[in-house]
Each structure stands twice: as C-alpha cells, then as structure tokens.
C-alpha cells in the first residue's frame, strides 16, 4: 500500500473520530436532560407530567424510526442552515447528532429508571428538591448504566458515520466506498474494515472499563 493511501486512511480515521466525537458529545449534552425528563415525568414520578411525557416520547420514537440514510437526505436544508453547507465532514455531523440525541435520551432514560425508587424516597425524606434528587441521586446512581449507554451510542455512531459518504461526508465509510468499491481496491476496503473493527472494539472496551470503575455496587471495585 502506498504512502499516499496510508495517509488517506489516517485522514479518514481522523474524520470518522471527529464526526463521532462531536455527535456523541452534543448528543449526550442534549440527550441527558431529555432522558432524565422522560424518566422523571412519567405519571406519579418526580416531575409527573404524563401528557408532556407522552408527546416527547412520540417525538423521540418518530425520530428513531426514520432510517438514518433517509434522515440524512431529509434534513439537508436544515443541515445547510446549521453548517452553512450540506457537503463535507462538518455538515455530516448534523444528521449524526440529530440521530444521536433521541437514541442517547432513551438509553439515559432506561439507566435512570433502573435506580431503586427507595433512594428517591430517602432523598425526598431528606428534604431534597426534584433537581437535587436528579443531580445528587439519580445521575450518580445511574452512571454505570449511562456509561454503557454512551458506549452503545458511540459504537452505533461509528456505523452511521460510514453512511454519510452518501451526501458528501467523508471518513472511513466514504473511503471504503469510493476506493474499495468504486475503484475496486480490495486492500483499501480491507484496511477500512479492519480499522472500523478496531475502533468499535476500542470504544466498547473503554466504555466497559469506565463503567466498571464508576460502578460501586459490587465490592470487587474497591479502590477504583
């Protein structure tokens, strides 16, 4: 493989990591409050607001049920508005983020709902406000689950990022299609696949490692 190709692979890897990282960070920042609200606004819960919960739930489901490739195309006008262009790596971050937000919100909702209701009761008995319960009890207690959820989100986004080549996004997926497939360079295709596998493995292992460290529920984790 030529030095030129290796450079291209490195560059594409960087682009993929950039897209996934930005989408994950924005997705988490926006998904966290939505997820917390989804978990806490159910009937009889901390911020009981069943009607709003229902509407938000439908919205989240609707976004999640649009196939990613269709989402990418459908929001091109919006992407152009936000990124100034609908082509390129930065533009590709927009649909990735739009897909990441509801996905991460659901994962965080699930993690929060796993928290023992006895802890909420104990915090209420201490005189905690709903916001204090969320900040000091729900999020810290759900952290192992949230970490695993974000890991799953990163892995999924690495997969999604391969599709944005379709609208002029770059990165590993795009490289694989343009060189590996269209120019029939099987070594490029193979290299792309191997790098993706390594990225996914690394993300998964790192996520699990962090989750183990923040999980104090089992005695074996002492000293973490």
């Amino acid at each position: 493989m030529s030095a030129n190709l290796i450079n291209m692979l490195l560059e594409a890897t960087g682009q993929t990591l950039y897209m996934v990282a930005v989408a994950t960070v924005i997705g988490a920042v926006a998904g966290l409050p939505i997820g917390v609200f989804l978990a806490c606004s159910r009937k009889g819960e901390l911020l009981s607001a069943p009607a709003v919960n229902k509407v938000l739930g439908i919205l989240v489901n609707a976004t999640r049920s649009v196939p990613f490739i269709i989402l990418v195309v459908a929001i091109i006008p919006f992407t152009r508005m936000v990124a100034g262009t609908s082509i390129g790596t930065t533009a590709a971050i927009v649909p990735l983020t739009i897909a990441a937000i509801p996905f991460i919100a659901r994962l965080i909702e699930n993690a929060i709902r796993e928290v023992d209701s006895g802890l909420i009761e104990a915090a209420r008995a201490m005189g905690a406000t709903p916001l204090q319960i969320i900040r000091k009890v729900l999020i810290p207690e759900a952290l192992p689950g949230i970490t695993l959820g974000l890991t799953l989100a990163v892995v999924s986004l690495i997969g999604y990022s391969a599709m944005v080549g379709a609208v002029g996004g770059e990165g590993l997926g795009d490289l694989g299609i343009r060189y590996g497939y269209q120019r029939f360079m099987p070594d490029v295709m193979a290299a792309v696949v191997v790098i993706l596998i390594v990225l996914v493995q690394a993300a998964q292992s790192l996520g699990e490692w962090i989750a183990r460290r923040v999980d104090k529920r089992a005695p074996r984790n002492r000293g973490a």
């Binding site: 023992d116 006895g118 802890l119 009761e121 104990a122 209420r124 008995a125 201490m126 005189g127 905690a128 406000t129 009890v137 810290p140 207690e141 952290l143 923040v214 104090k216 529920r217």
Partner: peptide, 22 residues
C-alpha cells in the same frame, strides 16, 4: 416549608436505601 420540616425528621428504612455510588 415542607422541605424544612423534613430536615427535622430523619428516617431509616428496611432496605437502608443508601447510595451505592457514595
């Protein structure tokens, strides 16, 4: 007002209800 009263009333539980993360 209710939260203020709650600070003057401690409670202990059958299943302890301690935060595993702390």
């Amino acid at each position: 007002r209710l939260r203020e009263i709650r600070r003057e009333v401690g409670m202990i539980f059958q299943h302890f209800n301690l935060l595993a993360s702390r």
